[in-house]
Amino acid sequence: MHRLPAWIGSHLAALRAVLVLTLVTGVIYPLVVTGVAQALFNDKANGSPVEKDGKVIGSAVIGQLFTDAEGEPIPKYFQSRPSAAGDGYDMLSAAASNLGPEDVVDTLPVPGQKDDEGNPDEGRQSLLTQVCARSKAAGELDGVRGGRPYCTPDGVGAVLKVFPAVGAPKRAVSVNQACPATPFTTSYQGVPVECGKPGEDYAAGRTVPVRGDAVAQVPADAVTASGSGLDPHISPAYARIQAPRVARERGLPVQRVEELIESHTTGRALGFMGEPAVNVLELNLALDDPDATKAD
């Protein structure tokens, strides 16, 4: 019997292995897993869709914004937490901002300057200023104090650049408050504080975040995005501060809105993992249901 050369036999064996593994891992295994998922976890396997009037309007596991065409919050709805995924809850851009606690200095926009695409220079907000601005906006929307430690009254990071970096201060600049803004503090160790000049380089200065005496009433999840940028939940604390506004806009008793919050609050997983949370989409849908908003 004629035998094939050894190198041909090796190639044929490798080809058979590729074909078998492709069939098993690329066809059979995915079909089995998909079939089991559809049989046992049909709703979750299909993305946990949420329907209204026969149409899918969202997912129970992916957040969404409740804003108008200009990006302003719609007052009659509970608001979701911020999202760093694209323009907000973009599933193709799921990610965090990747900004850390040391990101406290803004890049101020320079009037008249344009970026590489010809758009007006918008600068860059630090994580601290993003948190301060969100807290101020949430406070104004829901009628609570939006101030936070390390935030100025006008909603930016309370951060100084002090010169020289070592030794007695000779100059201090509130780098996140663009001129002609009035600095949040008049002096630092006897040195007058200046407003920030857009385009000026303050990198050589010593960074000094200044802690104020504001007590935050706006919860942390109202001012920070989740790690994925897609979290559909908010804390019960954030839901409660929104309840009076939603009740007023809908002409409902606050107590009834708070009851809906309670009924849409999930506890800790297995009784000890994580924190209680409120699904914003499901809560807003309940508010839109005339039967659900009727008093018991």
Rank of each mutant, 00 (worst) to 15 (best):
V24M: 13
E259W: 02
P120K: 06
V27F: 14
V246I: 14
A286L: 01
E102Y: 08
A45I: 05
T207Y: 02
A158H: 07
Q217A: 12
S187W: 06
T224F: 03
S10T: 15
S80M: 07
A243V: 01
L108W: 01
V131T: 11
A292P: 12
S93C: 07
L12K: 10
N98K: 09
K114L: 09
Q217L: 02
P153R: 12
L40N: 10
P180G: 11
P149R: 01
Y238Q: 13
V24C: 09
P236R: 12
A295Y: 07
A138V: 12
A216L: 11
Y77I: 07
P192W: 13
E117K: 15
K114F: 12
C195Q: 11
L65A: 15
G190Q: 13
D90T: 06
G167R: 02
F272L: 09
E275C: 01
D116I: 13
V50C: 00
E122I: 13
T129Q: 06
A165T: 07
G196M: 12
A69H: 11
R124L: 09
K294A: 13
D296L: 14
Y150T: 05
G63R: 05
G155M: 10
V215Y: 00
S80G: 07
T186Q: 14
T67D: 10
P290C: 01
A277D: 02
G26Y: 11
D142V: 02
E262I: 05
P244I: 03
Q79W: 06
S48P: 04
D291P: 10
A158G: 09
G190H: 04
I74P: 14
C179Q: 11
P169A: 02
P209N: 01
T224V: 08
E117H: 14
D201C: 06
A39I: 09
T152I: 09
E262G: 15
A220H: 08
D115L: 08
E258M: 11
P236D: 08
L108S: 07
P75N: 03
Q130G: 11
E259L: 06
S235V: 01
R3W: 10
P164K: 09
D296C: 05
N284C: 07
E275Q: 15
I62G: 01
A295E: 10
G147I: 10
E70H: 13
V159W: 01
I57G: 05
Q217H: 05
I74C: 05
L92T: 14
P198V: 11
L92Q: 15
P149C: 01
G196E: 08
E194R: 09
E117S: 15
K52Y: 05
G143D: 05
D53L: 07
L270T: 04
P49R: 02
T107R: 15
G47Q: 06
I57N: 07
A39D: 14
A84I: 04
G227D: 04
D53W: 08
A222C: 04
R240I: 00
I74N: 03
Q130D: 13
L40P: 06
V210C: 03
D289A: 08
E51W: 00
P164A: 12
D87N: 13
L15T: 14
I261N: 02
G123I: 09
E194K: 10
D53P: 03
A239K: 03
I62R: 09
E72I: 00
S135W: 09
A172Q: 03
I28D: 03
Y89T: 08
A138G: 13
S126P: 00
T34G: 13
N284R: 01
